[in-house]
Design a protein around this nucleic acid. Structure first.
Lengths: 143, 143
DNA sequence: TTTTATTCCTACCTTTTCAATAGGTTATAT
DNA sequence: ATATAACCTATTGAAAAGGTAGGAATAAAA
């Protein structure tokens, strides 16, 4: 039940981009330096976030990334779901629409469905704007 | 963010024991047959559950396991937490009391703390009794 | 037009975790 | 005694995690 570094780094990268929203395109070099995450690893994370069109990119000199939408319109759920692939607690919930075979008869599935439900509700309620507003002071340390 | 097979199997084993509460000691052989889980693997799961004293055991002929408490007094949180080791979404929350270094300054930690909070609250509200009462019909399929 | 700075793409690598299997030892009702 | 169970420890194969590495494509600036 741990969130992977890919998920955690994605969140930090998106927060960083939110903190520099309206400053044009931000390079991975800058994010890497500020967040102390390998630039090469950040490169690999980008495609996951772009599956859900969370970023705009510009190549070449003075290029970089910016949020595709205003920080108030991007939620922690979107970010973590994009990065992790899925936030369901059991993989049999991922293969919609059939779930696994005969899930209608599974005694534990409703527990996991309920769990997924509250996780999604919680993360849907948190936007990038919320995050940076609730944390005005500079942040030096990360997880 | 997936629950491992150890967690899922633990839940199924405990539900099985709840369904046969007051029938004396239940052998792993029986649970293995009913739940279609390798008996050898179940053996390895037991110690995790017993760290939190969820089971009573009897060795030898006619031996087996029984729940250490009434099904209404054992929650999904206890079972999954025992099996998984921890249900925190980030490992830096595990090393109490210091968390990681300088978590007071971490912008993302409050998000994960809030997430952990709702997960725990949800799973604490589900007892083994609840689970078997909400699922009277026989269950043939598992995840 | 050349240089420089960036994203983009693919392959590789090392370590850890997952999910078991295997073989034996100890205890205990019958 | 003997069958039947829990208990214990080691091993293994596959997959995932968490990166590193090198270069190609692109575009702004000099």
């Amino acid at each position: 039940m741990k969130i992977s570094t890919r998920g955690r780094y994605s969140l930090r990268m998106m927060i960083d981009l939110a903190q520099h929203y309206n400053e044009g395109f931000i390079s991975l070099k800058d994010i890497s330096a500020r967040q102390n995450i390998s630039k090469k690893y950040l490169e690999q994370i980008i495609p996951f976030l772009n599956r859900n069109n969370l970023l705009n990119a510009n190549k070449g000199h003075m290029g970089g990334y910016q949020l595709a939408r205003h920080p108030s319109k991007i939620t922690a759920r979107e970010i973590l779901e994009s990065a992790e692939g899925s936030l369901t607690p059991v993989s049999c919930m991922d293969n919609v629409p059939n779930l696994c075979e005969n899930c209608g008869n599974c005694i534990t599935l409703p527990i996991y469905e309920g769990l997924y439900d509250i996780i999604i509700k919680y993360l849907d309620g948190i936007t990038l704007e919320d995050i940076i507003n609730n944390h005005k002071s500079s942040c030096e340390y990360y997880i």
